[in-house]
Write a protein that binds this DNA or RNA. Structure first.
Length: 510
DNA sequence: CACTCCTTGCT
DNA sequence: GCAAGGAGT
């Protein structure tokens, strides 16, 4: 009886899981293992919102495995040591795990390899979390180790061959002796945001299905920012309007791997998943086989091709991969400036400390910023455009260190992901891959563009819910009497002064 | 083939 | 203003 270990990390799904598939293919019995990582907890990364979501994911995984005759094996402690222990107990000769990019994940992989080797068990690493592409397909020319700008990366990414999605296994046999801890319960975690989404593969698939059923994919990237003509969603993240919020909200599922990015990309573009890029498949001799083309899914029907919405959605998936390939090449970008500008950010004390606290609490007096920060508190999630506004406000308007803001986001975001979060913050702070480091997003013009009717602000800032239309973005322009009624702060900073301060600081340092 | 120059397009 | 890629040297 041969035994393999499938070590789940950020791939908590049964469908399209190359780690699980490889483990099953190489053995009669598989230990589907998850280790509650003491190092992640010690680093303060296991915050309530993600712990609760993770608990849902593990419960769903266990349920799915039980439907197939197996179960999840849960351990806690040091990942390398616990995996090696499980390998010894079950006599496993092979363990499979997903490749990941953060400095921590890279070290974890090495420690795993070493600990497993002592147990006589080989480690096999699979591309399951990160890349929509075959590994190595998106390497820049000229001897560079990564792409530093998104657009050239995206061109390469889009043209490369895609991994073929796998189905869920039909049966999973787990060795009887493999002991497991009791699964944690999401509803027992303290300090969770009241509006937190549910985790798990089924919840993820339901959200994806419901979002597409609502026609959101076709409308994606089209609303709110007045873009027109081809490629109009360029300046938005592909989802303009904050109030309508046509975003998919799939980011937590992508972070925990309850949904496969490869599968989402294929389905969004209306591909069967049987073929990669048309005409580029290595396996099929004849290009453009009719049988494959006829298997197009519903997203591709009735409109000749996938459409701009699907392209904008897939582009967002590419951003994840882009950030991951930056972090893989520059792991220190999680804490160090990618492109340093010699910033001397205001220290978090005195006036600056009060302003940063106001930002965290959503009491800056700038309604769109406060709405964003309160959505984060309440849902453990924030609209992507709002993230950029909130980050720009902290780093440029308050001139506070991006690490302060990134830490606050990681403390609350259910999709809190080192690669995406830190590099998006660096982008906003002008220390990242942005080629325009001095850009300052003006919260008022941004509000007019992305929340033209003020719906987003009224939803999240109840003090202002009585103010109609776009006037909600400028409560200080109300007459004295109306303003006295509001329990809402005056703006904590003057935008023009803040802009001058930032410009002066940047030019002094260069 | 390494290097510079030039065009293109921006989360 | 600058990354990327391609053409030219």
């Amino acid at each position: 009886m041969s035994v393999s270990i499938a070590l789940f990390t950020a791939d908590l799904r049964l469908r399209d899981n190359p780690v699980l598939r490889a483990a099953l293919a190489g053995a009669d019995e598989v230990v589907p293992l998850f280790v509650l990582d003491e190092a992640v907890a010690a680093a303060g990364f296991a915050v309530p919102n993600r712990r609760a979501f993770l608990a849902d994911c593990l419960a769903a995984l266990d349920e799915g495995l039980r439907e197939r005759g197996g179960r999840l094996v849960l351990r806690a402690g040091d990942v390398a040591r616990e995996t090696a222990r499980a390998a010894r107990e079950c006599g496993a000769r092979e363990a499979h795990v997903a490749a990941d990019v953060s400095g921590y994940a890279q070290r974890r992989e090495e420690r795993l390899r070493a600990a497993l080797a002592e147990a006589g068990c080989a480690l096999r690493v699979h591309d399951a979390v990160t890349c929509v592409l075959a590994p190595g397909a998106e390497v820049p020319s000229g001897g560079r180790d990564h792409f530093a700008v998104f657009t050239p990366y995206y061109r390469r990414w889009r043209a490369a061959e895609w991994r073929t999605p796998l189905g869920a296994p039909r049966a999973v046999r787990v060795p009887e002796g493999a002991g497991s801890l009791e699964l944690p319960r999401g509803d027992r975690v303290e300090g969770v945001s009241p509006g937190l989404a549910a985790g798990g593969e089924r919840a993820g698939r339901e959200r994806w299905a419901a979002w597409r059923r609502a026609g959101a994919l076709r409308a994606y990237g089209g609303s709110g920012d007045g873009n027109s003509g081809a490629g109009g969603s360029r300046r938005g993240g592909g989802q303009g309007d904050l109030g309508a919020d046509a975003t998919s909200r799939l980011s937590p599922h992508l972070h925990f791997g309850t949904l496969s990015p490869v599968e989402l990309a294929h389905e969004a573009l209306g591909r069967s998943g049987k073929s990669g890029k048309p005409g580029k498949s290595v396996t099929s001799g004849e290009s453009g086989k009719v049988g494959e083309v006829s298997e197009v899914g519903e997203a591709g029907r009735g409109g000749g091709g996938a459409g701009p919405g699907a392209e904008a959605f897939v582009r967002q998936l590419a951003w994840r991969d882009f950030h991951r390939q930056v972090l893989a090449a520059r792991p220190d970008a999680a804490h160090a400036d990618y492109r340093p500008h010699g910033d001397r950010w205001r220290r978090e004390r005195g006036e600056a400390a009060r302003e940063i606290a106001a930002w965290r609490e959503g009491r800056t007096g700038y309604p769109v910023i406060d709405a964003a920060m309160r959505q984060l508190q309440y849902e453990g999630w924030m609209h992507n455009r709002a993230r950029l506004l909130a980050a720009s406000f902290l780093t440029k308007t308050l001139y506070a260190d991006w690490r302060t803001g990134a830490a606050h986001f990681l403390a609350l975001l259910v999709d809190g992901d080192v690669a995406n979060n830190q590099l998006n913050w660096q982008w906003a702070a002008g220390t990242g891959t942005d080629t325009r480091p001095n850009r300052v997003l003006n919260p008022l013009t941004q509000a007019r563009t992305y929340d033209p009717n003020g719906d987003y602000v009224r939803r999240w800032v109840p003090e202002l819910s009585g103010i109609g239309g776009a006037a909600v973005h400028r409560p200080w322009q109300l007459d004295e009497a109306a303003r006295a009624e509001l329990e809402y702060p005056e703006p904590i900073v003057d935008l023009d002064e803040a802009r001058s301060r930032f410009r002066a600081a940047r030019s002094a340092e260069e």
